[in-house]
Simulated assay, not measured.
Amino acid sequence: MGSLCGLVLVLMWTLGVNGKDVSSLISRSMFEKLLKHRNDDICPARGFYTYEAFINAAKSFRAFGTSGNRDTRKREIAAFLAQTSHETTGLPDGPYAWGYCFKEEQNPTDYCVPDPEWPCVPNKNYHGRGPIQISYNFNYGPAGKAIRSNLLKNPSLVASNPTISFKTALWFWMTPQSLKPSSHDVITGVWKPSAADSAAGRVPGYGVVTNIINGIECGIGSTPGGEGRIGFYKRYCSIFGISPGKNLDCYSQKPFGG
Rank of each mutant, 00 (worst) to 15 (best):
F138R: 01
I187A: 02
G189C: 01
L157E: 06
I147K: 04
K254T: 00
P142F: 05
P131W: 01
L81Y: 00
E76P: 01
E217M: 03
D110Q: 14
R129E: 04
G257A: 12
R235W: 04
G47F: 07
A58E: 03
N39F: 10
S60A: 10
A143D: 07
P193D: 06
T66I: 00
P131K: 05
W118Y: 15
L15S: 04
G144I: 03
G99N: 03
G6R: 08
F31G: 03
V113N: 12
G16R: 05
Q106I: 15
D249H: 09
N125S: 15
T188F: 05
F61P: 02
I187Y: 02
R75L: 15
K74F: 09
S165D: 05
G94E: 12
K20T: 13
Y140K: 00
G94R: 06
I132D: 01
T168L: 08
R62F: 06
K103H: 12
F172M: 13
I164T: 09
F64S: 04
V190S: 03
E104F: 06
P92T: 12
F80Y: 15
S3H: 15
A57H: 05
N139L: 06
E217V: 03
L157M: 09
R129N: 06
V186I: 13
C43I: 09
P155A: 09
G189A: 01
T50N: 07
H127L: 03
V17I: 13
A159K: 07
I134M: 12
P204H: 05
M174E: 14
W13Q: 14
K192M: 11
N161Q: 10
A159P: 02
Y140H: 06
S67Q: 12
A82D: 11
I213W: 00
C218R: 05
S222A: 15
R62L: 09
T163N: 01
T168R: 02
R229H: 06
P155N: 09
E87V: 08
W173K: 07
G226V: 06
P181D: 10
I216Q: 08
G189T: 01
K254V: 00
S85T: 02
I230E: 12
P116D: 14
G245K: 02
A79L: 05
G130P: 01
S182H: 10
F166L: 09
N137T: 05
A159L: 02
K234I: 06
C237Y: 00
F48Y: 13
G128S: 11
I42L: 11
K234R: 15
T88A: 13
N137D: 07
P162Q: 11
T66L: 01
S23F: 00
K59H: 01
Q133D: 05
G221A: 11
S149R: 12
Q106R: 13
K103W: 07
R235C: 08
A79K: 00
L151K: 03
I134K: 00
G130S: 11
C43G: 09
L15E: 09
P142A: 11
L11W: 08
G128H: 04
F80W: 13
L157V: 01
L9G: 04
I55G: 02
A159Y: 09
A146I: 00
M12A: 15
I230A: 10
Q83G: 10
V17G: 13
F256A: 07
K254G: 04
L91K: 14
N137Q: 04
A53C: 14
N154M: 04
D197T: 10
P108E: 07
D197C: 12
Y136N: 07
L35H: 08
